[in-house]
Amino acid sequence: MRISELSQKSGLPVATIKFYLREGLLPPGKRTARNQADYGDDHLSRLYLITTLTVVGRLPLSAVREIVTALDDRGTQLDGLCRVINKALVPLDREEEAGSIGTTARYQVDTFVDGLNWNVEPGAPGRSTLTQVLTALRLLGWDDDVDVFVPYQQAAARIASREVDTIPVDADEDEAALMLVARTVLFEVAWCTLRGMAHEHIIAARAGKARKTDDAS
């Protein structure tokens, strides 16, 4: 198909598609003339993926670029792809700047993560993010211990296991990689959304219960 047809089927402007081509997010089409090229279903699928990651997944184009580069790298295994996705979802990998509080928090987070016996690299950005969360809690005046993460870790283990189990065992490498990317990013949004809705429901329910108690008295 020509780029105009690709635009029509994908719902994206031609200018946007050309931008993705220039940025390497979309592979070039098959050249048919000096200023013309043909595009196939793979290009359409890639455009759907980019749109999904940016619109629903809320990822910046820089993160999407890292993900599609890893997808195009035939040598990237699924565990390596997971690290790329996690870096895109949790980009806070800078050094903590909170003095002794941050240093103590980093030690406790590393001890906590290492104690899980999960295959998490020492320099994984998630460690820095958890450190920043724990440090921020303490700077706000709450004396939370690293065990505050335990229920989140337990829920994360169950959810991640369920997500990985939904990838068919007979899926080829490309299909498995695409499913891993899409499900990880989309269910991250779903998890945050449902958690927010649960907060709203529980707080409202407790407020309603409190009002009933006041009315009864």
Rank of each mutant, 00 (worst) to 15 (best):
residue 3 I to T: 03
residue 3 I to A: 07
residue 5 E to S: 12
residue 5 E to L: 10
residue 9 K to P: 00
residue 9 K to S: 12
residue 10 S to L: 07
residue 11 G to T: 07
residue 12 L to N: 04
residue 13 P to G: 11
residue 17 I to Q: 09
residue 21 L to H: 04
residue 21 L to V: 01
residue 25 L to C: 00
residue 25 L to T: 00
residue 26 L to K: 00
residue 28 P to M: 03
residue 28 P to R: 09
residue 37 A to Q: 02
residue 40 G to H: 01
residue 41 D to Y: 00
residue 41 D to H: 01
residue 44 L to M: 05
residue 44 L to Y: 06
residue 46 R to H: 07
residue 49 L to H: 03
residue 51 T to Y: 08
residue 52 T to R: 09
residue 53 L to Q: 01
residue 55 V to K: 09
residue 58 R to P: 06
residue 59 L to R: 01
residue 60 P to T: 03
residue 62 S to Y: 00
residue 62 S to K: 04
residue 66 E to K: 05
residue 66 E to Q: 07
residue 69 T to S: 13
residue 70 A to C: 05
residue 73 D to V: 04
residue 74 R to N: 12
residue 82 C to A: 12
residue 83 R to M: 06
residue 85 I to P: 03
residue 91 P to F: 01
residue 92 L to Y: 05
residue 93 D to T: 01
residue 96 E to Y: 11
residue 96 E to P: 07
residue 97 E to Y: 03
residue 102 G to L: 05
residue 102 G to E: 08
residue 104 T to M: 13
residue 104 T to S: 14
residue 106 R to V: 09
residue 107 Y to A: 15
residue 108 Q to L: 12
residue 110 D to E: 11
residue 112 F to E: 09
residue 115 G to N: 11
residue 115 G to D: 11
residue 115 G to H: 11
residue 116 L to T: 07
residue 117 N to W: 02
residue 117 N to R: 09
residue 117 N to P: 00
residue 119 N to M: 08
residue 121 E to D: 15
residue 125 P to Y: 03
residue 125 P to R: 01
residue 126 G to M: 03
residue 126 G to I: 03
residue 131 T to N: 12
residue 131 T to M: 07
residue 132 Q to A: 14
residue 134 L to R: 01
residue 137 L to T: 06
residue 141 G to M: 08
residue 146 V to I: 14
residue 146 V to S: 11
residue 147 D to L: 12
residue 149 F to Q: 04
residue 150 V to R: 15
residue 151 P to C: 05
residue 153 Q to D: 10
residue 155 A to H: 08
residue 157 A to H: 09
residue 158 R to I: 14
residue 162 R to G: 06
residue 162 R to F: 12
residue 163 E to C: 08
residue 167 I to M: 12
residue 167 I to P: 10
residue 171 A to M: 05
residue 175 E to Q: 10
residue 175 E to Y: 05
residue 177 A to M: 00
residue 179 M to P: 01
residue 180 L to I: 02
residue 182 A to D: 10
residue 182 A to G: 04
residue 183 R to T: 09
residue 184 T to F: 04
residue 185 V to A: 08
residue 188 E to H: 11
residue 188 E to N: 15
residue 190 A to K: 04
residue 192 C to S: 11
residue 192 C to W: 07
residue 193 T to N: 10
residue 195 R to I: 08
residue 195 R to S: 11
residue 196 G to E: 15
residue 197 M to K: 03
residue 202 I to T: 11
residue 203 I to P: 02
residue 203 I to D: 14
residue 207 A to D: 15
residue 209 K to T: 09
residue 213 T to C: 07
residue 214 D to K: 14
residue 214 D to I: 13
residue 215 D to C: 06
